[in-house]
């Protein structure tokens, strides 16, 4: 607060520099996406000289981008719902001292390990397994592989949220005769809602943007997710359609941006409420 005056302009300058640095590439993506094809040659002006939705129309008409969006949503929502359901239950048990059983230590260790191990190590053996099970023409391998990424992440984060809750509330409810299931659903879950939202958003993002497993497990363009479709736009043998790529980038950003915009208070509250305390 002291010495605030001389520092203020410097502060604003630094902030503006940071904002330009962070946002300019995003602006550039938007500005490429809305220019006419004819403008995307040679040196480009900073501000678009033309305006058109032709790249977006092109994506939906010739690249079946609508199907990719549906596929991405299907895979992301199914895997996220399952991962949340399984992960929350598991995290709760691991976080509470009153649950004691033999494998608990091993489980904790394994979950932690899975968050750390490199995904490429799992890719080939999983592929061979899925292929032997005859699942490759479906979306199941992709959903399962996203579970493999997201369950450890959810368990890992949610344990800290559960631990941050005082046990006393549960104990007094238990005295009043509530069953374990009631305790979990009615007493505990509502209290971790901010943290849950933060974790759900981050998991959604991971799944939505995931590329490595998708590139290996998805067999047919019928099941292409958005990152896969985007990568096909940068083809080796033909000229790259920058406008389409930019438009696809804009579309891929939409759902996540909406999430963050509407749930950002949850996100911050969740993240400061315990997860990052670890």
């Amino acid at each position: 607060m002291r010495a605030a005056l001389p520092k203020r302009p410097v502060k604003y300058l630094i902030l503006s520099l940071f904002l330009v640095w962070t946002l300019f590439p995003i602006y550039w993506m938007f500005s490429l996406a809305i220019r006419e094809k004819g403008e995307l040659f040679g040196a480009l002006s900073l501000v678009p000289r033309s305006f058109s939705f032709e790249h977006f129309v092109d994506l939906f008409k010739t690249k079946a981008f609508g199907l990719s969006i549906v596929n991405s949503l299907t895979v992301t929502l199914i895997s996220l719902s399952l991962a949340l359901a399984l992960g929350l239950a598991c995290a709760y048990i691991l976080a509470r001292a009153r649950f004691r059983f033999k494998l608990k230590g091993a489980m904790l260790f394994w979950v932690l390990l899975l968050r750390i191990l490199p995904p490429i190590a799992f890719a080939l053996p999983l592929y061979i397994l899925m292929s032997d099970a005859g699942l490759l023409s479906t979306k199941i391998p992709l959903i399962l592989s996203h579970l493999l990424i997201n369950i450890p992440f959810i368990v890992w984060f949610m344990i800290t949220f559960f631990e941050a809750l005082p046990v006393e509330v549960e104990e007094s409810a238990a005295v009043d005769g509530a069953s374990e299931q009631q305790l979990f659903l009615r007493i505990v879950l509502p209290q971790v809602l901010p943290g849950l939202t933060a974790v759900a958003i981050l998991s959604f993002m991971t799944s939505w943007n995931e590329y490595l497993y998708s590139a290996i497990f998805v067999q047919s363009p019928r099941n292409f997710t958005i990152p896969l479709t985007l990568s096909t736009l940068n083809s080796e043998q033909e000229l790259t359609q920058w406008g389409n790529i930019a438009a696809g980038g804009v579309l891929s950003l939409v759902p996540i941006a909406i999430f963050v915009l509407f749930a950002q208070n949850f996100l911050i509250a969740g993240l400061s409420g315990g997860a990052v305390k670890e």
Binding site: T74, V75, L77, I78, T138, K139, I140, I143
Partner: peptide
Amino acid sequence: LLVAALAP
């Protein structure tokens, strides 16, 4: 969604 995902 599950049915959509599993359907041949």
